[in-house]
Design a binder for these strands. Structure first.
Length: 839
RNA sequence: GGGGCAGUGGCGGAAUUGGCAUACGCAGCGGACUUAAAAUCCGCGGGGGAAACCCAUGUGGGUUCAAGUCCCACCUGCCCUACCA
């Protein structure tokens, strides 16, 4: 190891031009981080004379360790926030923790550490790790969702929703994760095997009394993205999630007179309904079933309910079902059609009952063939020359066509079929146009301890009663035993749930379920602005100045969870009158995912996890930050490369050298001596780089920010060696480079800025403005093509006229060779780029 | 089954409005410095060919003076969704 020491010694002796010490990132980074903090450099405050900018990145969950993915999400966002600050905006860039949730409780069960202790320890640890990034967080605004000061307002919002009829309790079949021992929202159940978003265990259905928010009231409004600059992909995911479909509600009647309503998108096929199917859980199962069929029906229903969704929804599963013995009457033609029960009809969608039109629906067709039911075509497609026939048809006809066999509507052309049928139904009062959504109300009850208690009490006399606002927060008790029973541990606390009814004062019990953590993260962007405010969820002065969020960044995995909930939440608060805008976050951008070096998803079990802490230790935060911006398109992500980071580290060392080099002082004495051409070339590069970096930061194209900065560094390095540009111009270049680097690599920029003797702080400088004249090329290389193929290149003045450019092109020997002495048929001139000669 | 995104050197990627394909970097090769190595610096770098040139952006067509970029079909990979009436 002594050899290394020795080699370091040689370094300074041999390279005469280097007269300063080496770049030791950790040393300068720690020093500047402390200085910025002492100076409160990044503390933001309301200033109505300035244009505000609220820049937000999704708040982290305090898992205990800052992952490289956090860095990837946060440092480019920080760079852009810093850039906007230099552009003169009053920027707020807050941070906090989404601190309630299952992992804390699982740690408690596994390692016998209190969830609270586990969470706060992790937060403390992550605060330290976050500080190493050198981001411009305003720590004064930090909010932690498990603080009573925070969840008090989560509970308060619950009460507001409750009072306005937007929160309700209902018994319903819900998704339950047997591993996490809690119910889940529809949004937290993923994949074709219907697994828990967190632990990947297959969910089961349970009938439970649960609390819901009426997000479905906002289904249509959630489809409106006109006020938002959000990625198409997120818009599409949310649109599909809401799943709006237009059609009609049609009321059939059972023979005993019960109304049996169905939803259909194809009312025009009503005359082709040959049977009905209701879900096994449908309320009419009991009454439509005849005694003769009761036994078969009961066993089918019991089996269906026992099955998981996975089994029921297996795509290639053969259709199953059972006849009830009952019949319904088709309102359009008074026909008597049999009522079946089948699990392909879902009780949770539409009305839980369908009219089956096997001639024009794949599922109904398969079912009808399987059970030998009638198939009656009622639509004849224009391109079908054969007679539609239910006995011979091989597959249902899904194509548009003219209505046939449809009584009074026979002959209606395809483009009017649906509209006219609905009008006809409405006239007769047996149906009406309707819209149905896939979206379901947001289930917020969780049978877990580590969450905000739902502020409701149950009184034997008065029923469910909201906890009075003056009694908030309903505190979580600390002394608790964790038993994964499928019920909230709060239920087993000896005294906590017993309380007095707020209405009659009699004995009452508290709701023991806690709230979904997505409730806490639906409004954190508001609390950040005044986290210590006691008289309301926020300080109106801060709120009205900063809101809404101008730019929001985070992962796309939240498209149909957090991002849909927080939009809903804002709209609900607007309608209650608590705030006055429609959307919480105006611009959204998503980062991609970093994979391990083996191109696999990073995981401890694969052993391919990249630890940011050790990278920072080795290369410094600035190198890690710039590498994360450089190595991939930010919105796409890529596999990590351990050797790649060496490249940006080398770049920073080169910057260090060119800015520190004491020869700067001697780089030719004056502008007079400096050579005109190299001066103009260097200045052009400097101003082109300003244009490029500005454009790229505006557009979230961080990888090309770094390559542009590298190119400028290379140009400065060449200029330094050639020694032909003069001190003044060289320094203009170095200073501009440092300012352009400041958002990306805040520490080294600040250090070198100071070493150049410039006034503190580089982060308080204004963003360089490109001089368009300096950036403009004087000479351009004109590409000469014949028939679109490059044959020659000539250097011409940038402002060359079209005529002259074409003339010069035709003079070229290489062009003439292809012309064979003939006049060209056509000559195309693209100014500043090329001449294409077509012979 | 349905929908979407992507495919460019050995690798990550660039090409902003249809106009020089491969910027920037990694890895590699050659050189300088060194007793040697590391570090650093300089240079080379899609494939074929002696050269003129030819061929290359997943494959095959098309539009155009000109296509990585636009259109059609297909292949591969990834993501979302899934009996949604």
């Amino acid at each position: 190891m002594g050899e290394i020491e020795f080699s370091r010694g040689i370094n300074w002796k041999d390279i005469g031009s280097v007269t300063t010490e080496k770049y030791v990132p950790r040393e300068i980074e720690l020093r500047w981080q402390q200085r910025w903090e002492v100076d409160k450099l990044y503390q933001s405050s309301v200033d109505v004379t300035r244009q505000k900018f609220y820049f937000l990145t999704m708040l982290p969950y305090p898992s205990g360790d800052l992952h490289i993915g956090h860095w990837y999400a946060m440092t480019p966002s920080d760079a852009r926030a810093r850039y906007l600050r230099m552009r003169g905006y009053n920027v707020v860039f807050p941070i906090g923790f989404d601190a309630f949730g299952l992992p804390a409780e699982n740690a408690a069960i596994k390692r016998n550490v209190h969830p609270k202790e586990w969470t706060y320890q992790n937060i403390e640890n992550m605060r330290g790790q976050l500080r190493t990034m050198g981001a411009m967080w305003d720590w004064e605004r930090e909010a932690v969702s498990c603080d009573p000061d925070y969840y008090r307002w989560s509970q308060w919002f619950f009460l507001q929703l409750y009072k306005h009829g937007m929160a309700y309790r209902k018994m319903s079949p819900v998704d339950f994760c047997p591993n996490c021992n809690t119910t889940l929202a529809r949004e937290q159940v993923w994949g074709d095997d219907r697994h828990c978003e967190r632990c990947e265990t297959a969910v089961v259905k349970k009938d439970l009394e649960q609390w819901f928010f009426k997000i479905t009231d906002y289904a249509d409004e959630l489809l409106d993205f006109s006020k938002l600059d959000w990625p198409e992909r997120v818009q599409r995911l949310q649109t599909n999630w809401v799943g709006r479909s237009e059609g009609a509600h049609v009321t059939f009647h059972t023979e005993s007179g019960d109304a049996l309503e169905v939803f259909t998108t194809r009312p025009d096929t009503l005359w082709g309904a040959t049977f009905m199917v209701i879900a096994p859980e449908h309320p009419l199962v009991e009454s439509v079933t005849t005694d003769r069929h009761r036994k078969a029906v009961e066993s089918y229903v019991a089996a269906a309910v026992r099955q998981t969704d996975i089994q029921r929804e297996a795509a290639d599963k053969e259709k199953t079902g059972v006849f009830t013995g009952g019949y319904a009457v088709n309102p359009v033609n008074a026909e008597r059609i049999p009522i079946w029960i089948a699990d392909y009809v879902l009780v949770t969608y539409g009305t839980g009952a369908i009219m089956a039109v096997p001639a024009h629906d794949e599922r109904d067709f398969a079912f009808a063939r399987h059970f030998g039911l009638e198939i009656r075509p009622v639509v004849q497609s224009e391109d079908e020359f054969f007679e539609a026939d239910g006995v011979t048809m091989m597959e249902p006809n899904m194509h548009p066509g003219m209505m046939i066999n449809s009584g009074p509507l026979t002959g209606t052309p395809a483009d009017q079929a649906v509209v006219r049928t609905i009008a006809w139904l409405e006239e007769r009062g047996c149906g009406k146009g309707a819209v149905n959504y896939r979206l379901r109300d947001w289930l917020i009850s969780r049978q877990r301890y580590w969450g905000a208690p739902i502020p409701i009490t149950y009184c034997t006399k008065c029923g469910a009663q909201p906890v009075p606002e003056s009694q908030l927060p309903v505190l979580l008790p600390d002394d608790i035993e964790w038993r994964p029973t499928g019920e909230s541990p709060l239920k087993y606390h000896p005294s906590w749930q017993h309380t007095a009814c707020p209405t009659c004062g009699g004995a009452a019990t508290r709701e023991t379920d806690t709230m979904d953590t997505f409730m806490c993260s639906s409004w954190y962007q508001y609390r950040y602005l005044s986290p210590d405010y006691q008289d309301g969820p926020w300080d109106l002065e801060e709120f009205s100045y900063w809101m809404p969020v101008d730019t929001y960044t985070g992962g796309i995995e939240h498209a149909t969870m957090h991002l849909i909930y927080t939009r809903y939440f804002t709209k609900a608060l607007r309608d209650i009158g608590i705030l006055d805008f429609d959307e919480p976050m105006l611009q959204l951008r998503n980062q991609g995912i970093i994979l391990g070096e083996d191109s696999e998803k990073m995981s401890k079990s694969r052993g391919n996890v990249v630890a940011p802490d050790s990278l920072v230790e080795k290369y410094g935060a600035d190198a890690v930050r710039s590498y994360l911006m450089f190595f991939a398109r930010w919105d796409q992500g890529a596999p990590w490369s351990g050797s790649g980071i060496e490249g940006v580290y080398r770049w920073l060392q080169r910057v260090w050298r060119i800015a520190n080099d004491k020869n700067i002082i001697n780089i030719n004495a004056s502008r007079a001596q400096a050579q005109d051409r190299p001066v103009r070339d260097l200045r052009r590069k400097v101003h082109q780089t300003i244009q490029q970096v500005t454009y790229d930061l505006e557009n979230f194209e961080f990888n090309t920010v770094i390559s542009a900065l590298m190119e400028l560094t290379n140009a400065l390095n060449t200029a330094r060696k050639d020694g032909m540009v003069g001190r003044e111009v060289y320094l203009e270049g170095v200073e501009t480079l440092l300012k352009l680097m400041a958002p990306v690599t805040p520490h080294i920029s600040e250090e070198l800025w100071e070493r150049l003797g410039r006034p503190y702080s580089v982060h308080q400088q204004s963003w360089p403005v490109a001089d368009a004249e300096a950036a403009a090329a004087e000479e351009i290389t004109l590409v000469l093509q014949v028939n679109g193929k490059v044959r020659d290149r000539i250097v011409v003045p940038a402002d060359i006229s079209a005529d002259l450019a074409q003339a010069r092109a035709l003079e070229s020997k290489h062009v003439q060779r292809y012309l064979d002495g003939q006049d060209p048929k056509k000559v195309i001139y693209v100014p500043g780029r090329l001449v294409n000669v077509v012979p």
